[in-house]
Computed example of a mutant assay.
Amino acid sequence: MDIITADLCDEYRDQVEIAEPIFSIYGEKKAFYGPISTVKVYEDNVLVKKALQTIPEGSVLVVDGGGSTRCALLGDNLAKIAVKRKLAGVIVYGCIRDSAEINQLNIGVRAIATHPLKSIKEGKGVENIPVQFAGINFEPGAYLYADEDGILVSDERLNK
Results as ranks from 00 to 15, higher is better:
Y26M: 08
N137D: 12
S154A: 14
V41S: 04
D14T: 06
A31M: 12
E43G: 10
V92H: 01
C71T: 15
L61M: 00
S37L: 06
L47H: 02
L144R: 11
K49I: 03
I18L: 10
F138W: 14
E139D: 11
I129R: 10
G150H: 10
K40S: 14
A88Q: 03
G66K: 08
T54H: 12
V90E: 08
E20D: 14
I36C: 12
V92N: 02
K50M: 04
I36Y: 06
K50Q: 14
D155Y: 08
G125D: 04
D147R: 03
V131A: 10
A88E: 01
G94Y: 04
G108H: 00
V39C: 10
L152T: 09
I22M: 05
R157K: 13
C9Y: 01
K29L: 13
I112M: 01
M1H: 10
V46Y: 04
I96K: 05
A111L: 05
V48A: 04
V63P: 02
R85E: 00
D98Q: 11
R85M: 02
A100C: 08
P56M: 00
G123R: 07
D10V: 06
D76G: 13
I4R: 05
A19T: 01
G58Q: 08
N103S: 04
A82P: 15
K160L: 10
G135S: 10
D147W: 00
F32L: 05
G65F: 07
G75V: 09
A142L: 06
E11M: 08
N103Q: 02
M1E: 09
A142H: 15
Q15D: 14
I151S: 06
D76A: 15
I25L: 12
G108M: 04
R97M: 15
Y12K: 07
A79S: 15
Y143F: 15
K118H: 07
I112N: 01
E11K: 11
A88G: 03
E101K: 13
C9M: 10
G94V: 06
L61A: 05
K30C: 12
E122K: 12
V92E: 05
I4E: 11
K121I: 01
I112W: 00
A146S: 15
V48T: 11
Y12T: 04
L52P: 10
N77V: 13
G135I: 07
D64G: 15
F138V: 09
I36T: 06
D10K: 08
F133M: 03
C95G: 03
Q132A: 13
A146H: 00
I120D: 09
D44S: 11
K80E: 15
I112T: 01
E11H: 09
C9Q: 12
I91T: 04
I18K: 12
R85T: 00
L73H: 07
V46W: 01
N77W: 02
V16P: 09
C9N: 05
A146D: 07
